[in-house]
Amino acid sequence: MNIFRLVADLLHLASIVILLIKMYATNSCSGISFKTQVLYLAVFIARYLDVFWHFVSVYNTFMKVFFIATASGVVWAMLGPLKDSRSKSLDTFRWEFIVAPSALLAIIFHDRFTVTEIFWSFSVFLEAVAILPQLHLLQQSGEAETITTHYLAALGGYRALYLVNWIYRYFTEGYVDVIAWCAGLVQTALYCDFFYVYFTRVLQGRRFALP
């Protein structure tokens, strides 16, 4: 564990807490892509179900349980109590176009040809693009609540710091994970436009609004 990875994980954790606060405080999930949330739940289930047979550390176990539990909670809330506040008409990204290629890539690129390894690869590829429905929704509406942008910023910051973590790990322990690196690079790159608006508008006290 190094400081970059720790802060990255904490940002990831914070992003979910921010999302939960937004949903509780406003009693609404408007502006949040239901598709992205379902995809994240799929990502966590595909990758973290190994919590039952692959022990890494108490920290690792706690985080896996936390992410599966909160993602389930968010999807449950969006299906039930907060259903009517969903931005359905804007959440129009075709999820098939990212799930199918992710599955195909996982069948081609994996460390070993086993069910768990292919699921792991699938989850990594899917996570890289799971934000697309959310960014699409943002583009459709052209603006976002400030708290929603904080959620996205924490989520993007988490992956950006993982890039730094990988560089650090490569030099300190010779750690190499080509699949995660490529996917992580794509994942972080997708946030570029968002970050530009976030830094130039939201952090200066203005509303998030696309030009």
């Binding site: 990875r5 994980d9 990831h12 190994d50 692959h54 890494v56 690792n60 985080m63 896996k64 992410f67 460390d111 792991w120 993982y162 973590n165 994970d177 995660a180």
Partner: peptide, 10 residues
């Protein structure tokens, strides 16, 4: 063992 340290990240 190599398998034990694999996928130690979240």
């Amino acid at each position: 063992k190599e398998e034990d340290v694999k996928h130690d990240e979240l």
